[in-house]
């Protein structure tokens, strides 16, 4: 009779455990390497000096924030289309990771801005857009927090997720039309970065990407285990 309980985590548990642990370890090594390269190996920036070094973390996390929002978008579309709960879960986790990385992007950017621009914050297009995106993502997660995971709520959340993603380029466009103070970032143009800087940047992007994937895998595993726990509790209540 007890065998009727179907534990999803039992099947995937050991593999997810190993993969998640491995990815976490890899990202830790990668971030350590980024710090060593960024702080010790690369030269000072000709204009900005040592402040420039925060750039490695800034770009690495920014790329991941974009990637997370893209996953949020794709998973939301798939959920509306297919209706499988796993896409809803993927969307939610992507939004959480997106919020984490966007927060780091805003903070590191602000720390960089203080010595270089002389202010912690300026209402420039890219900054404003990122802040608006941060607010939208926060609102999405609050919507998830204030609604149940059943009924129409996940579908509503998926629509909000899609609109959030579509809205980002429009906000960027309208804001840059409105406030054009700020030189465009062109660090990836050839000849702009010293070779060691480029290597540090690539290592950083790679390390933070692995971190994002690791967080994703661990978070998905946690959700699966939680589902199982809920099912077991229900089962226990039925047996009592």
């Amino acid at each position: 009779m007890q065998s009727a309980v179907h534990l999803k985590s039992a099947h995937s548990s050991s593999l997810a455990y190993i993969v998640g642990g491995l990815l976490t370890l890899m990202s830790a090594v990668g971030i350590l390497l980024t710090l060593i390269l960024g702080l010790l190996v690369t030269p000072k920036d000709a204009v900005e000096g040592n402040v420039f070094r925060i750039f490695y973390v800034h770009v690495g996390t920014a790329w991941n924030a974009y990637a997370a929002f893209f996953v949020l978008f794709v998973a939301s579309v798939l959920y509306l289309w297919r209706g499988r709960p796993v896409w809803d879960r993927v969307a939610r986790i992507a939004a959480e990771i997106g919020l984490l990385f966007t927060t780091i992007v805003l903070i590191t950017g602000s720390i960089w801005g203080r010595p270089v621009w002389g202010v912690w914050w300026t209402w420039d297009a890219r900054l404003t857009t990122t802040l608006v995106l941060w607010f939208m993502d926060l609102a999405y997660l609050l919507l998830r927090a204030y609604t149940a995971d059943e009924g129409r709520a996940p579908r509503y959340a998926a629509i909000v997720g899609i609109i959030t993603f579509i809205d980002v380029p429009i906000v960027q466009f309208s804001v840059s039309w409105w406030r054009t103070l700020h030189p465009q970032a062109d660090v990836l143009a050839p000849g702009h970065l010293a070779p060691s800087m480029l290597i540090a940047l690539l290592v950083s992007v790679f390390a933070f990407t692995i971190l994002g994937v690791a967080l994703f895998v661990q978070r998905l595993r946690l959700e699966t285990v939680r589902d199982d726990l809920r099912e077991l509790r229900q089962r226990a209540e039925e047996l009592e």
Binding site: V132, F135, M136, A139, Y146, V160
Partner: peptide
């Protein structure tokens, strides 16, 4: 509409968008 405390949530969703 499905959220608890919806009247608190609406401005947070609506204003950034």
């Amino acid at each position: 509409a499905e959220a608890r405390a919806r009247e608190l949530l609406l401005p947070l969703l609506l204003l950034p968008i």
